[in-house]
Write a protein that binds this DNA or RNA. Sequence first.
DNA 1: CCACCAACGGAACTTGATACCATAAATATG
DNA 2: CATATTTATGGTATCAAGTTCCGTTGGTGG
Lengths: 224, 224
Amino acid sequence: MSKPSPRDRLAEAAFALFDERGYEQTTVDEITERAGLGRTTFFRYYRSKEDVIFPDHDRLLALVRDRLLTSGRHTALAAVCDAVRLVLLHYLEEAGVARRRYALTSTVPALRDREIASVARYQRLFREFIAERMGERGEPASLRAELMAAAVVAAHNHVLRRWLRGQSPDPLREFEDAMRQVAALFAAHAAPGAGDGTTIVAFRTGQDLDALVPALRRVIEAPE
Amino acid sequence: MSKPSPRDRLAEAAFALFDERGYEQTTVDEITERAGLGRTTFFRYYRSKEDVIFPDHDRLLALVRDRLLTSGRHTALAAVCDAVRLVLLHYLEEAGVARRRYALTSTVPALRDREIASVARYQRLFREFIAERMGERGEPASLRAELMAAAVVAAHNHVLRRWLRGQSPDPLREFEDAMRQVAALFAAHAAPGAGDGTTIVAFRTGQDLDALVPALRRVIEAPE
DNA sequence: CCACCAACGGAACTTGATACCATAAATATG
DNA sequence: CATATTTATGGTATCAAGTTCCGTTGGTGG
């Protein structure tokens, strides 16, 4: 049983102290002291105090980007849903760290903000991917890309948070359901036109279409 | 012509220095020196260096919350669309500051993150409002609230960013269009089932409905 | 004229983060 | 095996943001 790496010792000391005294009440000096290492060493392994808690976000983001670029799915939205699953799986794998981190981000505003910022990077990646895939077809398509990216990320976060709070016995199943719901939002129609104020909504139902036409007509002709 | 308030003098000095040397290259000491005030005074008026750039986010958030709670709109989504318009209008009013701030948040990562974090607070407010208004009807409704809040915020940001980049001659019109598009996403149906896989999409168009029925039928009967 | 209150300034301190240099351990090289 | 060279680490000094505490000024009401 050889000693764990300095990096791991620092992380362990940090989390232990965060549990005992809280994040803001813990100084970097105290962390390095408990780990038996020098202050300089800490900043060699972690760019900042926050980085101890968010170690490999960059790596994961790169992974997701790769998955996007090599995806064989036909629609941009399907490719993104596919890619964001990687994020969820990553959290599920390191469940212990994820839950400790969640306890901290729920409590400490600075950490919450950081978490949000990193989520925004995924959203941006998705938005750019979708917009590019849809081929820069002007303004409404661009808004549509933005909405899709936001919806995918929101749905993912929803499932992830439920799992982190222990409210989800089967997060993967919830994830698939959520992605289906997102797909349903965007599935049936092209972007409504910037042109004539046309708004399109499509639907798929077991009922007979003819029976629904009158109701549809009311919707179409209603003001607002 | 009496002197402007210390608060304004500090803000002016800060923005001038940020333009000249950049945000990170400017120290608080330099700001107070140019403003002819003491360092202590700076932190009396602004909680942090970043606060000079984001002065009244709290006030605006409170304003939006009030508008939500006193809204007479029937659906939660309509109330939120209504409330988020306040944010856009606020930016349009102080166009000068908004554009200078945008130039900074586009450049400085720390400021971008802060901006994103404050946007997330609006999104959270909206999500909680919608979820509560929809009455805590279990899991799918909760996801739906999350998606709605994310869509409204994304659409707002999309329009705002276009305007900030000078790509939008009529931001209010674009805003209304965007909100219509968001409403269209969620308008026609209750949450698609957990139940029978029914997916509904509705539409509003200038074309005659009868002419579209065959096309609709194809959509409905197509597998996935 | 004096007591009081609010705004401002200054100095010291804490802490995260960086830069630079020194030293010990590991490894390569003759 | 001895010596050079890289690599990991520690220490010190320094900077800048942010906080605390206290002193000073200036106006206001008695």
